[in-house]
Amino acid sequence: MDGNIENNKQWYVIHTYSGYENKVKANLEKRVDSMNMGDKIFRILVPMEDEVEIKDGKKKIIKRKVFPGYVLVEMIMTDDSWYVVRNTSGVTGFVGSGTKPIPLHESEVRLILKQMGVEEPRTKTMYRVGQNIRVISGPFENFVGIIEENHPEKGKLKVLVSMFGRETPVELEYTQIEDA
């Protein structure tokens, strides 16, 4: 750890003893509270999904851990925040190479949160018609386009993307774009 404060929060994966994911989440939330780390450690998630179980001819929906033995933590990585997480009861370590935790890619986090039904907070950035944007996920990834229509209530835009020398209208979600 080099002690540099990254200027943005990112999601990291911590490894836990199997079956202790919810206990680790509760323990870590208590530590964040008691050690005043709320400005560096934000959300702690145990990715779950609904699974239909049929028992005695009856359907029952149960929650199943998507990644048994793992917990996601949204945090700003500093020596202090690393120490708080790493030394929480039940945590065996961060996922990464050697001693350096590696954050999840933003698209991976969006996919996991979407699967869980946890919506990311609405994007604060208001896009406007005529603005240039870059597509960051989906089939048009890395294309640059111009916003033709904006539908903030749906979190969607119609964007003119230049393909093969032609302007092609494409419907995209706010989560699929960034300022160009």
Results as ranks from 00 to 15, higher is better:
residue 73 V to A: 09
residue 61 I to C: 04
residue 157 L to M: 15
residue 119 E to N: 12
residue 115 Q to C: 06
residue 91 V to L: 09
residue 128 R to T: 11
residue 151 H to W: 09
residue 110 R to A: 10
residue 69 G to Q: 03
residue 66 V to S: 08
residue 140 F to V: 04
residue 157 L to T: 12
residue 111 L to A: 15
residue 94 F to C: 00
residue 111 L to W: 13
residue 94 F to S: 00
residue 147 I to T: 00
residue 73 V to F: 02
residue 151 H to G: 00
residue 80 D to A: 08
residue 78 T to I: 03
residue 82 W to N: 00
residue 149 E to N: 07
residue 151 H to M: 11
residue 75 M to F: 11
residue 160 L to Y: 06
residue 63 K to A: 00
residue 120 E to F: 11
residue 143 F to R: 09
residue 77 M to E: 01
residue 157 L to A: 15
residue 137 S to N: 11
residue 142 N to R: 10
residue 65 K to W: 03
residue 118 V to R: 13
residue 155 G to H: 09
residue 121 P to E: 14
residue 125 T to L: 08
residue 142 N to Y: 12
residue 112 I to G: 05
residue 133 I to E: 00
residue 68 P to A: 02
residue 145 G to S: 04
residue 92 T to V: 14
residue 154 K to F: 13
residue 144 V to G: 01
residue 104 L to C: 06
residue 128 R to V: 13
residue 82 W to T: 00
residue 117 G to R: 05
residue 121 P to W: 09
residue 162 S to P: 06
residue 69 G to Y: 02
residue 65 K to C: 01
residue 65 K to A: 04
residue 147 I to A: 00
residue 155 G to A: 02
residue 126 M to S: 12
residue 118 V to Y: 14
residue 156 K to G: 07
residue 89 S to I: 07
residue 119 E to K: 13
residue 69 G to I: 00
